[in-house]
Amino acid sequence: MKLKLHVWRQKYGKSKGYFEQHDVDYVSEDMSFLEMLDVLNEKLLKSAKEPIAFDHDCREGICGCCSLTINGNPHGPEKATTTCQLHMRKFKDGETVYIEPFRAKAFPVIKDLVVDRTSLDTIIQSGGFISVNTNQPQDANALPVDKKQADLAMDAASCIGCGACVASCPNSAAMLFVSAKVSHMGLLPQGQPERKKRVLAMVNTMDAEGFGTCRNFYECEAACPKEISVRFIARMNRDFLKASLSKED
């Protein structure tokens, strides 16, 4: 298989980026997208050119490291699939492929296709937890949880923190990411004591980190490799409104 790749190159965060064209002819349909880039990198290295930097680690769709916007879609064209699990058989011979970093003000480029997503961690640090110290808990079964609620919490908790929602959103909103964590904890009895505080803190941090505003396009849901539903955003809006109206400072 042959492909015409246009790969975003950017030496440093502040330097100007550009597209570099690579015509590749070695692509086998069994390769994952990242393996296709691995081979390109080996070839670049062999000819003493600098390989393309991109984030990746587990390569089984769970760590959330890999990114890349492929032909305008974060994680590429296939639904519910991370870039590392996207395989080349989804592309046509001769196809032109644009590879860009996840773009957002809150995700500054570090190099080439590598971006800094620590703003997502900062949001979690401001409230995405249940305040319980080690060894304080009661027996795990002391508090029964409605199975449906627990399953819904698990749906939300399956977020891998890749940031595709932000990348896909024309406004770079992080609502899907934040709402997934807010809902995961808000749905469980353990998360109730801090429910109001959590949603206020996380949303305020989200705003402060430079993410945009949700306009209900639902691109995030389409891009999410874990298919997290925008219903969690509605749930967060509800929680946020309630918390804002009833907070006592």
Partner: peptide, 8 residues
């Protein structure tokens, strides 16, 4: 993005 494709 230089290329943008929308799903939803």
């Amino acid at each position: 993005y230089a290329v943008k494709n929308y799903f939803k």
